[in-house]
Computed example of a mutant assay.
Amino acid sequence: MIGLPFVYTLAGLTFLAFAVLSLRDASNRKRWGNGAFWGLLALSMLAGDRLGDFGNGLLVLALVAIAGTGQLGRGAGGTTAVVRAERAARYGNKLFLLALVIPATALAGTFGFEHLPGLVNPKQVTLVSLALGALLALVTGLAWLRPHPAAPLQEGRRLMDSVGWAAILPQMLASLGAVFALAGVGDVVGQLMSGVIPAGSKIGAIIAFTVGMALFTMVMGNAFAAFPVMAAAIAVPLLIHQYGGDPAVVCAIGMLAGFCGTLMTPMAANFNIVPAALLELKDRNAVVWTQVGTALPLLAVNTLFIWWFAF
């Protein structure tokens, strides 16, 4: 049965290729740091289960040491800007069809694999479908555009070098959210908020929850990391237990409120820093500034939706 091991293996092999290509890039003065960083990340995905908790902890500290001491640099791998501009002019917006292959495959797999029992782990079907979508997009691109076979890996490495250590920030912050939840941070936040929210004010509790989700997401870079804290602090004890809110509505729309915070923070590197690197924008935070005007009205709407639909 196909499950997360397949996804981890695929990602691990990809980062291993990035490590090898980094080590071979003589134009990068910090190639050894890049090679070590992506190599350690590959090791965590390929052999994390065998390393154990202590080994993985040491691996994370090594990653932090490499990034914190400025050992990551940018090489000259990948296609040149002239070649990219020529291909963009030749194919135009048709290039976006490759990007659409991934969500289309993920959607089809999520609903289609349930009719093929025993093939894919039902708890991990979306992630597996997403990985298969990436593979299908890769094969489609190679067949259509006919680049050098190593071009996808070189371009992937170029993108990772542009983003740097921030590429793994979402995983780190999601783990931090789980640690916070186990440490009882949600209970502490709940006690603090009890002194701020007016007694018996349902709308006050709703605003505290949605705004808190957005703010915690902005700090932690990941709504999934913020949710355990804010759910333990406000959603469960107040909105669900005290006021009788529908758990499905409160939790689902609460996550949407958190995603509003995602739009407004550079900590959400995969959403906001990667596009800036892909578009080669001079301002790494240009995507964030553009999205603020959308995020704030959406946050207000999500707050009203919980008020209208959860009670």
Results as ranks from 00 to 15, higher is better:
Met1Gln: 05
Tyr8Gly: 00
Leu10Tyr: 11
Gly12Val: 00
Phe15Asp: 01
Phe15Val: 07
Ala19Cys: 02
Ser22Trp: 04
Leu23Ser: 05
Arg24Ala: 13
Asp25Met: 02
Asn28Ala: 03
Arg29Ser: 15
Lys30Phe: 11
Gly33Tyr: 12
Gly35Asp: 06
Phe37Leu: 08
Trp38His: 10
Trp38Ala: 07
Ala42Phe: 10
Leu43Arg: 01
Ser44Gly: 15
Met45Tyr: 10
Met45Ala: 08
Leu46Gly: 07
Gly48Asn: 11
Asp49Met: 10
Gly55Ser: 14
Gly57Tyr: 07
Leu58Val: 15
Leu61Phe: 14
Leu63Asn: 05
Ile66Lys: 07
Thr69Trp: 10
Thr69Ile: 01
Gly70His: 09
Gly73Pro: 08
Gly75Leu: 04
Gly75Glu: 04
Ala76Tyr: 03
Gly77Lys: 00
Gly78Asn: 03
Thr79Val: 14
Val83Ile: 14
Ala85Ser: 13
Arg87Glu: 12
Ala88Trp: 06
Tyr91Asn: 00
Gly92Asn: 08
Lys94Ala: 12
Leu95Trp: 06
Phe96Gly: 10
Ala106Trp: 13
Phe113Cys: 03
Glu114Val: 11
Pro117Gln: 05
Gly118His: 08
Val120Arg: 11
Ala131Ile: 04
Ala131Asn: 09
Ala134Leu: 14
Leu135Phe: 12
Leu135Val: 09
Ala137Arg: 01
Ala137Ser: 06
Gly141Ser: 02
Leu142Val: 15
Leu145Trp: 11
Arg146Asn: 07
His148Gly: 04
Ala151Gln: 11
Pro152Lys: 00
Gln154Thr: 09
Arg157Tyr: 09
Arg158Asn: 04
Leu159Met: 14
Leu159Phe: 06
Met160Leu: 13
Ala167Trp: 10
Ile168Thr: 11
Ile168Glu: 02
Leu169Trp: 14
Pro170Val: 06
Pro170Ile: 05
Gln171Gly: 14
Met172Gly: 10
Met172Pro: 00
Ala174Met: 13
Ala174Arg: 05
Ser175Lys: 08
Ala178Phe: 15
Ala178His: 09
Val179Thr: 14
Val179Trp: 13
Leu182Lys: 14
Leu182Tyr: 07
Val189Cys: 01
Leu192Ile: 09
Ser194Lys: 14
Val196Asp: 10
Pro198Phe: 04
Gly200Pro: 11
Ser201Lys: 05
Thr210Ala: 11
Met218Gln: 13
Met220Leu: 15
Ala223Asp: 12
Ala223His: 12
Phe224Asn: 11
Ala225Glu: 00
Leu238Gly: 03
Ile240Val: 11
Gln242His: 13
Gln242Gly: 01
Gly244Asp: 02
Gly244Asn: 02
Ala248Leu: 15
Val249Pro: 10
Val250Phe: 04
Ala252Leu: 15
Ala252Gly: 11
Gly254Val: 10
Gly258Val: 07
Gly258Trp: 06
Gly258His: 07
Phe259Asp: 13
Met264His: 08
Thr265Asp: 07
Pro266Val: 12
Ala268Val: 01
Ala269Glu: 02
Asn272Pro: 01
Ile273Gly: 03
Ile273Leu: 15
Val274Tyr: 07
Pro275Glu: 09
Ala276Gln: 04
Ala276Lys: 07
Ala277Cys: 13
Leu279His: 04
Glu280Thr: 07
Leu281Lys: 13
Leu281Ser: 12
Val288Asn: 02
Thr290Gly: 13
Gln291Met: 15
Gly293Arg: 11
Ala295Ile: 06
Leu298Tyr: 07
Leu298Trp: 05
Ala300Gln: 02
Thr303Asn: 10
Phe305Arg: 09
Phe309Asn: 04
